[in-house]
């Protein structure tokens, strides 16, 4: 991957939300590159800021309740400098979104065909008939049986899996180059989830679209994504290739997450538990390593004072130095005592 392939470049993005007259950063100075034709997963627990990130790219936040700074370069322009009207030319055409709950993401009073066509109305010059034709083609593409019939059905007449296919159809209607999928399979049954994952992968292969996959489910990440960015308390703590990450996660938070999952290997054993709770936005300690309070009694010296993301291997970035001293054995955390090998940087 070279710099020429970069589709989206997020630079120093800070998104703050208003809580009781004060603004708190849900994304705190974050950086991320998304390359062409790849799936990047943004992983974290509820409240970590992963959805806020996706919404920032699309300019979906409520303007009075949010402050955004930084840069979001997309195909040579900074989306943050765009007005709402200018953004409307990008939304749906260049970047589109898939939402979690197919039940609520569709307008209950509009036939699904019209909902798929709606974007084309604003982004293309297609005639009414052509739009309908295209909508039916897309229904076909997301593998909906009898697309002509489904075209004029209402959302409540379709099953959950079908509805999610409609949501995907809406997202790909104008063949965008980037899709932000916010928990696209969380509300679905497992067998349907598997099929939606396969569908998204196939669409990505065929349409050469990049996908930002926002999820809490490492299983889905493993099945779909090329790269992963783990988010904790508004910051990325680890970014890397999924394959390498799953075999050898580095940051204590990534490790803990992975070990807290039940799997074939830890059957009958206790699962790893992270101490404490995810700090809420307005109670967040913004100084130093944000994960420190959740690592059992670690020495200050293993953490950096102002932790930064560092590339420790090619394409594998980790925040803070504490990862060098954190291990999990039989799901129990082991923190090595600080020795003299103070991290010296690259």
């Amino acid at each position: 991957m070279s710099n020429d392939d970069i589709l989206l470049q997020v630079e120093d993005l800070t998104t703050s939300f208003r809580i009781d007259e004060q603004f708190y950063p849900a994304n705190d100075h974050i950086n991320l590159d998304v390359y062409e034709n790849e799936i990047v997963a943004i992983v974290g627990e509820s409240g970590c800021g992963k959805s806020a990130f996706g919404h920032s790219i699309m300019g979906m936040h409520h303007q009075e309740q949010t402050k955004i700074s930084g840069k979001i370069h997309f195909k040579g322009v900074d989306l943050l400098s765009y007005s709402n009207t200018q953004l409307n030319k990008v939304r749906g055409k260049e970047i589109s979104m898939i939402f979690q709950d197919p039940l609520t993401a569709l307008n209950p009073l509009m036939i699904v065909g019209k909902q798929i066509e709606e974007g084309m109305k604003y982004h293309t010059k297609l005639s009414k008939n052509k739009r309908k034709q295209k909508a039916i083609e897309i229904l076909n593409e997301v593998k909906i049986p009898q697309p002509e019939r489904v075209y004029s059905q209402y959302p409540h007449e379709l099953s959950g899996g079908m509805r999610q296919r409609i949501v995907i159809a809406i997202a790909i209607a104008c063949e965008p180059s980037l899709i932000i999928a916010d928990e696209p399979t969380t509300a679905l049954d497992v067998t349907i989830q598997a099929r939606i994952i396969d569908l998204l992968k196939e669409l990505k292969r065929r349409m050469k679209t990049s996908i930002i996959l926002i999820t809490h489910d490492l299983g889905v990440v493993s099945e779909m994504a090329d790269r992963i960015a783990v988010m904790y308390a508004g910051e990325f703590v680890e970014i890397g290739e999924v394959k390498r990450f799953l075999k050898n996660p580095l940051h204590p938070y990534s490790k803990s997450l992975l070990y807290s999952l039940p799997s074939k290997n830890n059957q009958g054993e206790k699962l790893h538990v992270i101490k404490g709770v995810v700090p809420s936005l307005n109670h967040l300690q913004r100084q130093g390593c944000r994960f420190k309070p959740r690592m059992n009694g670690t020495d200050d010296s293993i953490h950096e004072e102002t932790p930064t993301l560092r590339e420790v291997e090619k394409g594998h970035w980790v925040r803070c130095t504490c990862y060098k001293h954190f291990h999990i054995e039989n799901s129990h955390q082991v923190v090595e005592e600080e020795k003299d090998d103070v991290f010296q940087g690259q």
């Binding site: 497992v190 994952i197 299983g219 889905v220 493993s222 099945e223 394959k243 799953l246 992975l258």
Partner: peptide, 11 residues
């Protein structure tokens, strides 16, 4: 089918 649908962590 159910078992095959479980997302696999091992890439």
């Amino acid at each position: 089918r159910l078992i095959a649908s479980i997302p696999e962590l091992d890439t």
